[in-house]
Each structure stands twice: as C-alpha cells, then as structure tokens.
Design a protein around this nucleic acid. Sequence first.
DNA 1: TCGGAAATTTGCGCGAGAGCAAAGAGCGCT
DNA 2: AGCGCTCTTTGCTCTCGCGCAAATTTCCGA
Lengths: 240, 240
Amino acid sequence: MASVDRSLVANLPMFAGLAPAEQDELLREARSIRYPKGSAVFDQGAKADHFYLLLHGHLRVEKVTLQGQQSVVRYVSGGELFGVAQAMNLTHYPATAVAAVDSIALAWPSSSWNRLLTKYPSLASSALQTVGSRLQDTQARVLEMSNEQVEQRVAHALLRLAKQAGRKVDAGVEIDFPISRQDVAEMTGTTLHTVSRILSAWEQQGLVEGGRQRIVLRDANRLHVLAEGDEGALNRKPNP
Amino acid sequence: MASVDRSLVANLPMFAGLAPAEQDELLREARSIRYPKGSAVFDQGAKADHFYLLLHGHLRVEKVTLQGQQSVVRYVSGGELFGVAQAMNLTHYPATAVAAVDSIALAWPSSSWNRLLTKYPSLASSALQTVGSRLQDTQARVLEMSNEQVEQRVAHALLRLAKQAGRKVDAGVEIDFPISRQDVAEMTGTTLHTVSRILSAWEQQGLVEGGRQRIVLRDANRLHVLAEGDEGALNRKPNP
DNA sequence: TCGGAAATTTGCGCGAGAGCAAAGAGCGCT
DNA sequence: AGCGCTCTTTGCTCTCGCGCAAATTTCCGA
C-alpha cells in the first residue's frame, strides 16, 4: 500500500497545528482506500472499527429507523473527518456511509484513537470542532423542520448542498454529485412527489434547472428569499 | 465565594479520570453561581465567555429563528456540561439557557478552555462525549420529525423527558420540573393546541395525568407502543 | 382574600402536503 | 441499437394538524 503524501492533506483542519514530522507519522498509520460509487464505507449497526478522512469524492450518510424509514443525515465532502463513532464512545456506527461518486478515504483503526488523542492534543480540538459543527447543522435542521414549510426546507437544503458541494457552471451552480428527488426528500422530511412538484414549479420560474439526478441552481438569490420565508415577496399584492 | 467540595462532583463524567488533586485544582478555577427560576444563564447571541457544569436544577435551552419562532433545543439536568460553545470554536452562544427551577452551576472562563484541555486531556474526551451524545439526540429528533406523526413525537418527547428528569411518584413518573404544553409543542414541532388535545385524550385513556405545567406518565409501556408507531395496536380491527 | 395574568381546554374550518396511481423520460447494459 | 430498469412527472383525493376564537381553570401577588 502506497503511503499518502503530506502535501495532499497538510492544510486540512485535521492536520492543522501538527508539525510536518507529526503529520507524516499520523499518515503512516492510515490506509488509503478506494470506494467505487454506490459502495458502502461502513454500515449502520456495524462495529465501529475505523475512523476516516475523506480525501476525494462525496458520501451520503443515511440512517434507517426501526420502522424501516430511511433518511439522509448529511453528505460528506473532501477533507472532512467522518466515522468518528469511537470518539463519542459509540461502539457501532449509527448510520451508513455510501459513496455518491467514486471516492477515496484514509482509514485509521478506532483502537488507536485514544493513543492518538494523547499524542496529538490538537486532534481533540479538531474532532470537537467537527462534531460541534455537525451539531449546529443538525440543530438548524430541527428548527427548520419545526418552523418551516416544505418549500422553504427544500430551498434551504439546496442552498446548503450548493455551498458544500457546488460547482460553478455557466448556468449557475450545480450540485457536484448525483442526487435524486428521493434523496432531497429524505433530507427534508417530505416525499419525492412533493420535491418533484416543487422543483418543477421552480424550473418554470427559472430558479433551478433539473435533470436526472442533477440539480443546478440558477438563481440563488431568489432561493434565499424563499428559504428565509419572506413569504410572497414576489407575488404579494401591491396593496395588502 | 466558597469553594466547591470535590465530593459533590468527583463521580461526574467530567471529572472521571482525574486525580483528586487535579479535581481540586479544576474546581478552584470555577465560580459557583445561583440562578433563580426564570433567569437566564446566558442568552443566544451573547459572547461565549464561560462554560458551565450544572450542579443542581434544570435548564431549558431555547433558540429563536430569524423569523422569531422559538424552539426548545433540550433540557439540561444536574451533572451535565453545557455552554461549551468555545470548545466548538463558536464565539457566541447559539441558544439561550433559562433556569426551569432554581439552579446552581459552576462557571469557568472560556478563555481557559484551551489551557485546561492541554493540562487535562481527559477533558477532551468528556467534552467530545457530551457533544457527541447531544448530536445523537438531535439526529434522533430529525428522524422523528421526518418520519413520525405528531402523536408519536409527543410520546417520544415525554418518554425522553421522563428518562432524563423523571421522579417516581405513587401514580407513575413525574417530569421533575414545571413544563407547559407550549414547551412540549416547541420540543416536537407542533402547536400547544395539538399537544393539549393529545394529552387530554391520553388522560382519558389513563396514559398520563396532566396539570398546570405538570405531566405525570402513568403508563410508560403503552406510551412506548404509541411512540414506536405500532399503529393501532390497541384499536386495530380484529380482521383487517 | 381577591383580581388578573398565564396556562389550558375545546370547537370549527381549511389547506398543505401525503398517499395512491399511472404515464413519461433518461440511462446503462447486453 | 434496443430493451428494461430507475428516476421523474403529474393528477386526484383525503386527512392530519394548524390557525383562529373563545371559554375555563389555576396560580401568584397585592
């Protein structure tokens, strides 16, 4: 197995605050693994025997309930730490991570987590920050689900995806991996039917451009207006 | 200001893995503060200048959106670390913490967080675990909001509250602090009207016992059935 | 002890969006 | 090149639970 060059990862948050020699040492303990599109990095309920850093690609993290309903928890993009179940004292992964496109990740054995933590205290900070910002995102989602209509939630979800994994194209910003209406529905707590209807309507208004597993944001500004619930800013009557 | 006796806190998760001398040292840096019922420990948006350990009481953590809608993020009970914004690299508190009953907390200056982290590496683990289990809870809530009906969500919320802050009474398990229908609504993403209706119905069936800012679970088992969505297990027709 | 504010209960009507059904479109695989 | 599977679109109906309104109860402080 080839070792990973430090220059690829040196400026990721996880490696900030480490001397080059330490970075090399940390890298030497990791294996680099390729995950073809559609394959699982780990499965919900499996023993949490590794933690990972995504080098390249995008993962969809999904979770199924006892009753069998599935939800998309989040997407992981390059440079992010994931699968850190061990750090939260979980023995098993609470969700499944599937490659949305061909991806590459570094894997460390969970068993070395505590040792690494002691050896490189800055790891603790970066893990805390990773988990912390995930907590912020998740709480934001709870607020959205509590207080917003479906249309606003979908707008928020798309804007978040574009920010995290948007690729500029001539027509606007395209989500940089295949994503179905069903996926969006599972991110926003609605049905693929409703998402499809909403996107169709938006497409007619020139807000987005759709396609099979493909979404392009054409007018992020107007989407923001929708997302923030400035209700009817566009179709409000002149004299209320 | 009186110093806090180690015996009060020695077996809390936060102090596990520290030698008694270290525990004393850590305690010496903290101030003990009393928060009368209804007062705020910190406000959403304020500078995150302290982090806390709740010694006694219960706090309600709430968050308002840009549009002014309020939600209850969670309740904090005795022994829990909270207000650790600094640890997640936030400069301001993302929510407000209000004493639901008269409470007492230890406060450390945020500025010493990093120093303490270096000095007591086990702090990192306990903070990670605190934040991690909060993340688990919050994600569970997202799943609930995505996939469950209001009635199931309310059942889940009450069971979680009972587990975290339940007090055994003759009639069942009572939530150990004043909590209004409005509060439950803000935890479950519904309205106080709907919560009131649900609780009234449950009271007639002998599942719960209500009162002003008071909820007693009389039959946790049947509530569990409701929560897990075993739809109509009780009113299902003999021959479907 | 009494007055008033806050919390709770309950009725009624409506609308967002889920559920069901079926047709249409795009892509991969042989 | 063509077949078939998956993804998407769209129509229709029905229901859960929200919004509004008003009565009632409970507690706290003067």
